[in-house]
Computed example of a mutant assay.
Amino acid sequence: MSTWVEPAGILARGTVIVLTGRGETASAYQRFARRISADAYRVRIVEVDESLAPESTRAAIDEIVAGGDAPEPRILVGSDTGAALAATLVDDVPVDAAVLAGIALPTASAAVPVAAAETALSWDDEIEARSACPAHRKVLTTDERFRRGALSVPLTPDLSVVPPSKPTLVIHGTDDPVTPADQVVGAFSGRPRTRVRTVVGGRHDILNDVSHRSVAATIVLFLESLKLGADLPDIVRVPGA
């Protein structure tokens, strides 16, 4: 489990627990963790096991909270199946909110063959589906522990995602070929205490795509709103709105 802490001399504003997606290791989220921790949120990265079992992920979250160094509010941030796990678990674990980034929906009709284990993506197809960011592509390509072809692994029935009741930010790329954006918008829009944001041209690894700075800024705005209340009051607004 990897940890990034707030800058020295600054009081931590909360804890962000990142759940990785299919094939990923903590290496994929170092840039994200550095950026969020620089804004004084403590970041813990949980490498989700390949079984995608909610029980083992729940145990990891409980361990972080029980350790005594996870200041509130506590937020689950998940990508791909990590986002599906976050949505599955958030209402039942000791956290306050969730960020679902590039969520893998079990019902998604994807343009890439994620539903059939026997149909493996080529590496070129997988990297195209994941991200257009050259830096992130290099991270994935050089990570010896990254499991190529993971997007072809079928989703477990345990990940039958029900929109959470706790405050939730859903952020998704409009050009995500793994989980079509219209399915995500349709599943989460209009839900209480839920904000849905789409990233123009974004692909599946939306935390690590070319718009990663804007995505991180959107997440920080959500975190700061959460600190004001579970109804997510706006901090920055259009005059007269």
Rank of each mutant, 00 (worst) to 15 (best):
V90R: 01
V210L: 07
E47V: 03
S152Y: 06
R31A: 01
A83E: 01
W123P: 07
G186L: 09
G14A: 09
S79Y: 00
A60Q: 10
K138C: 14
S152D: 02
R58E: 07
V139E: 15
S211N: 09
L228T: 01
T119L: 09
D39I: 07
P154W: 02
G23V: 06
S211Y: 08
L52G: 13
A181E: 01
L151G: 03
A129L: 06
R213P: 12
A135L: 13
D124F: 14
K166D: 07
S2G: 08
A66D: 14
R195W: 05
A129D: 11
A87K: 11
R22T: 05
D176G: 06
E224H: 00
D205V: 03
A101N: 04
S225P: 05
G78R: 03
L121C: 09
I36L: 09
T81G: 08
G9V: 05
V170S: 01
G21R: 03
V200I: 11
W4K: 10
L76F: 02
F146W: 15
V178L: 06
A40Q: 02
V220R: 15
P239H: 12
E224W: 00
V139F: 11
R148P: 03
S51Y: 10
G173Y: 14
R74C: 08
R195E: 02
I64W: 09
P94N: 08
I10S: 15
A241K: 13
P177H: 10
S27T: 08
T142G: 12
D91G: 05
L85W: 04
I36M: 02
A28R: 01
I75A: 00
P134N: 12
P134K: 13
P164T: 05
R148Q: 13
A150G: 09
H212Y: 14
F146T: 13
A86N: 06
V220S: 06
G149M: 07
T25H: 09
T25W: 05
S152G: 00
W4D: 07
I206V: 07
A38V: 02
V112T: 05
R191P: 01
A241N: 15
E47G: 01
T194A: 01
P163N: 14
T179M: 09
S79N: 07
L159R: 04
I206S: 04
I45G: 00
D231F: 10
S225R: 09
A38N: 05
P192A: 00
R44T: 03
L11E: 15
A181D: 02
P94T: 08
I36F: 06
V238I: 14
P54D: 11
H204G: 08
R148T: 10
A84S: 10
D158K: 15
A70C: 12
S56K: 03
S189Y: 11
M1T: 10
E126G: 10
H172C: 13
D182P: 15
V48D: 01
E63R: 15
E126N: 12
D125V: 10
A181N: 04
V16R: 07
V112S: 03
I17W: 07
Q30N: 08
E128M: 15
T3N: 13
R195M: 13
S189T: 03
P157I: 05
T15R: 04
V5R: 02
I36P: 00
R148N: 12
E47H: 02
G149T: 12
E144D: 14
T15I: 11
A120F: 12
E55K: 05
G82S: 04
A101F: 06
D96A: 10
D62T: 15
T88E: 02
